Simulated assay, not measured.
Amino acid sequence: MSLLPLDRRSPPARALRRVAGFGLTAAAALLTAVLTGAATGGARAEPAGAASVALVVSVDVSQSVDDSRFVLQMEGIAEALEDPGVIAAMTGNPGGTLFAMVTWADRAGLAVGWRRIASRADALAVAAQVRATPRQSGEFTCLGQMFRTVAGTILPAMPVPAERIVVDVSGDGIDNCTDPEDLEAERTALLATGATINGLPILVPGENDVVGAGAYRAPGYGLRATPLPQERTDLVQWYRAHVVAGPGSFLLKAAGYGDFSRALRRKFIIEVSRLAPGRHED
């Protein structure tokens, strides 16, 4: 079999001329590097280093979230990922931001697998994945199940380490399928991974402005002893007591589903920008 002569203008030809005075081993190494670059269009492989923050966006899709509300949530997350301020925050730290999205009702599932957002193109690609997420069926609001899935399945699957782990929980209701001690145990187990849990309760006047035993009759009531405190409370207070926890954790509410996108944009920036912990609630 005959070999075709190298074009003098080609990268391999130039490399051979450059390494004429090198030792054989060095010449072979350099030529291999040039040929690899030529085969990949000259692109350099990105280092697989640690990310600045790993962000798990965890979205309630239970029965209270109808199709229009589901679309508003997915669109709100996608719009947040496309926002210039959010992109700057997510890409501004070394290693960028690891992103995953979990949807949960009776069960929790990985809707968007781990993606590194280190450029605007990365953010737009993830936004497109979020918009294409199909609706997950489910009736109950099983927060404890979501905590367990994130701690036991989602976080161990992170492709690279992260300096910080943030679990961003949004929803319009309280857990209605987990015993109180089990819910607290699952949250404690998630915190033990080093995660911080932030809350984004979605307030719907006339529907969830009062929650607790005898007030918010979501699916599952009457099937077992109520896991809720006997006193009535509001959703913000319930999230503060049963969701938000960990170093620098905070709560930021959305004034209905129409406000979800605005609230989430602000929340993403706070979560990934290393802003000083404090009261971010509005």
Rank of each mutant, 00 (worst) to 15 (best):
M1A: 13
S2C: 00
S10H: 12
P11A: 10
P11E: 08
A13S: 15
A13K: 09
V19N: 01
G21K: 11
G23E: 05
G23K: 03
L30A: 05
L30Y: 15
A33K: 07
V34T: 05
S52E: 08
S52F: 09
S62N: 11
S64H: 10
D66T: 08
D66V: 13
L72W: 09
G85E: 11
L98H: 08
M101N: 03
L110I: 07
L110T: 13
W114R: 03
R115F: 02
R116H: 02
A121G: 00
Q129P: 00
T133N: 04
R135C: 10
G144K: 12
F147R: 09
A157M: 08
M158E: 04
P159V: 02
V166L: 13
V169M: 15
G171C: 10
N176W: 12
C177I: 04
P180Y: 13
L183H: 15
A189G: 10
L191W: 13
A192D: 07
G194Q: 05
A195H: 08
A195N: 05
I197V: 15
G199Y: 06
N208C: 04
D209Y: 06
V211D: 05
V211P: 02
R217S: 14
G220H: 09
A225H: 11
L228F: 15
W238G: 01
R240D: 14
R240W: 10
R240H: 12
F250L: 03
L252M: 14
L252C: 01
G258K: 04
S261N: 00
A263I: 04
R266M: 12
E271L: 09
S273P: 01
R274I: 00
R279W: 10
H280A: 07
D282P: 14
